[in-house]
Design a protein around this nucleic acid. Sequence first.
DNA 1: CCATTTGTCTATATTTTCTATAGACTATAA
DNA 2: TTATAGTCTATAGAAAATATAGACAAATGG
Lengths: 154, 154
Amino acid sequence: MMISMKTKYALKALAVLAESRKRGALQISELASSENIPKKFLEAILLTLRNQGVLASKKGPGGGYTLAVEPAALTIGKIVRAFEGDLAPVQCLGDASPAKCAECADMGTCGVRLVMADVKTAVCAVLDRTTLADMIERSEHERQKSLKLLDYAI
Amino acid sequence: MMISMKTKYALKALAVLAESRKRGALQISELASSENIPKKFLEAILLTLRNQGVLASKKGPGGGYTLAVEPAALTIGKIVRAFEGDLAPVQCLGDASPAKCAECADMGTCGVRLVMADVKTAVCAVLDRTTLADMIERSEHERQKSLKLLDYAI
DNA sequence: CCATTTGTCTATATTTTCTATAGACTATAA
DNA sequence: TTATAGTCTATAGAAAATATAGACAAATGG
């Protein structure tokens, strides 16, 4: 039930892009080194996000990537789905056809499917109500908290 | 974000064991053929469940597996964790040490971690409030519904 | 005790997925 | 026209999931 490195790297890169979007485009290599992501790997990740309409890119000197949507309008669900597919815990809850588990005799009455449908609903609820802006805000909030703690210590 | 075949097979086998527990032990081969599970693979799965205290086994003629706990006292969460580990979407939310993602600079303020903590909470909530008995009941409920539909059709 | 049945355990094969890299190609700016 | 930076296809390498083989141990009934 883990998310892949691709998803994790994507979220981290998008957070950086969101925070620096006033300052114009960021290049793959800048993002890669600032977040410790293998450059060639990140390349493929950013390309996926671009093809999903999440990022815009510009080639040549001074080029790079910029967010194509407002951080407050971009859900974490959209990003995660770009790499993990529909968030189905079992095949028979997916959008793809045939959306059926090969080994299952009767999808309609399968108990596993019924329970996992609840899991999928719960996961989607969290990811679809949380935006990139929310994620960044929460991260910033934690940073402030730890700074305050440091103040008190001194 | 899919569950493994092991988990799926385990849930199916446990449902059969729960429903036939008045009639005594079931053998691996019976379970394997009734649920279309490779016998040797199921063997390993049942062994895991036995070591978790979920199943009891008996060797020799007339032997086999029986549930060691009441279906209403056995949560789906316990079963899923036996095969998927703690349900952490990212390493840094796991119980294992070091519970830290190798590539992450600051776990305390990581936005990905904060969001995924919500996901983990949501998944655990569903799986820990649902028991094997619930799962079977819901499955039975669906069966009744489809029987009624058949009645109306005739 | 013997023979048969059934679970236990260790090792390994097979397949698939994830992670990462290589290198040729295209567009842009100065 | 040269250097820069993204695009695209292919593939290598590592890890995990799925599945199987075979020797072993315990129980049962005669």
